[in-house]
Computed example of a mutant assay.
Amino acid sequence: MDSAAPTRRREPRPAAVVFVVLLVAQALALYWPRVDIQGPVTWTDKVVHVLLFLLPTLAGLLAGFRPAYVVGLLAVHAPVSELIQHYLLPHRSGDVWDAVADLSGVVVGVTVVVVGRALRR
């Protein structure tokens, strides 16, 4: 008989699963090979960019991942994603204002978590 204690399988935290799902959705939205938009691009495009970075920031921080990793990863990903769209995806174009909107989403996400935690104290 084996005397080793049985190891328990650790279940993923729901917030961590949400974080991963949001990162996958973000990657699909940012790197889909072709996006056909009818008519002029309006401010709603920037709102989508803010949300694409705000929601994963919130989920990652609330899941308990190290803030430096979550914020660092997403802050670096913002401009890099625009460069990839501009140089590597033939039917997409990078936009500096999209990167600004992305970074704004990260900042708003961090702010919501910090303020929310301060208010609960």
Score class of each variant (00 low, 15 high):
82 E>Y: 03
34 R>C: 15
40 P>A: 14
7 T>I: 14
9 R>I: 12
113 V>M: 07
23 L>S: 08
117 R>E: 10
84 I>Y: 09
111 T>N: 01
100 V>H: 00
59 A>S: 05
84 I>S: 01
94 G>D: 04
4 A>I: 03
69 Y>C: 12
47 V>M: 12
71 V>P: 07
29 A>D: 10
103 L>H: 09
1 M>I: 05
86 H>P: 06
62 L>N: 00
39 G>N: 04
12 P>Y: 09
5 A>F: 12
98 D>Q: 04
63 A>W: 03
54 L>D: 07
15 A>L: 08
72 G>A: 04
69 Y>V: 15
46 K>S: 06
20 V>Y: 04
34 R>T: 15
25 A>G: 09
110 V>F: 12
8 R>V: 15
118 A>N: 09
3 S>A: 15
4 A>T: 02
21 V>A: 15
44 T>V: 15
87 Y>R: 01
63 A>F: 05
20 V>R: 00
112 V>Q: 01
92 R>Y: 08
31 Y>G: 11
56 P>R: 02
39 G>M: 09
27 A>L: 13
91 H>A: 15
44 T>L: 11
86 H>G: 12
67 P>F: 14
108 V>C: 10
45 D>Q: 06
86 H>Q: 14
5 A>E: 13
48 V>F: 13
43 W>C: 02
2 D>P: 15
42 T>C: 05
96 V>T: 06
78 A>R: 02
121 R>P: 04
84 I>V: 15
90 P>Y: 06
31 Y>I: 11
19 F>W: 14
112 V>G: 00
63 A>S: 07
119 L>S: 05
51 L>C: 04
75 A>M: 06
19 F>E: 04
2 D>R: 08
80 V>L: 11
20 V>F: 13
18 V>C: 13
36 D>T: 11
8 R>L: 14
70 V>R: 00
18 V>D: 11
92 R>P: 04
114 V>Y: 13
2 D>L: 10
116 G>M: 12
33 P>W: 08
43 W>S: 05
84 I>L: 10
94 G>W: 05
106 V>D: 00
15 A>F: 06
104 S>Y: 06
9 R>T: 14
87 Y>D: 09
101 A>Q: 02
57 T>S: 07
102 D>R: 02
33 P>S: 11
59 A>N: 09
28 L>N: 11
